[in-house]
Amino acid sequence: MKILITLEKDHVAPRFDFTREVLIVENKGEKVRTVILPRSSAEELCSFILAENIDLVVCGGIEETYYQYLLWKKIRVIDRVIGPAKEVLKRVIKNNLKEGEIVK
């Protein structure tokens, strides 16, 4: 499963449309890389997610339009997540993260 977490500093970015950096995780955390995006744009981030064949997106606030678009493209989205990306990732790998969760 390929996971993407939107980043702001080392936390999950509060807004999907203002994200400038993402964390891409593969093989249950064995392969991790950070990608700096050229600009913040929800549309471009959606295209990037599709191009990267991401299976699961973890983010903060996301507008319904983009949320539904990703679901339609069969990409799972866990949104309104708050917390340090590292801890959030641990929870995702353990399949123990749900929408609106605050990880401390």
Binding site: R15, G60, G61, I62, E63, E64, D79, R80, G100
Partner: peptide, 8 residues
């Protein structure tokens, strides 16, 4: 803001 119902 983005609210709980994903509305801007």
């Amino acid at each position: 803001i983005i609210d709980v119902h994903r509305r801007r």
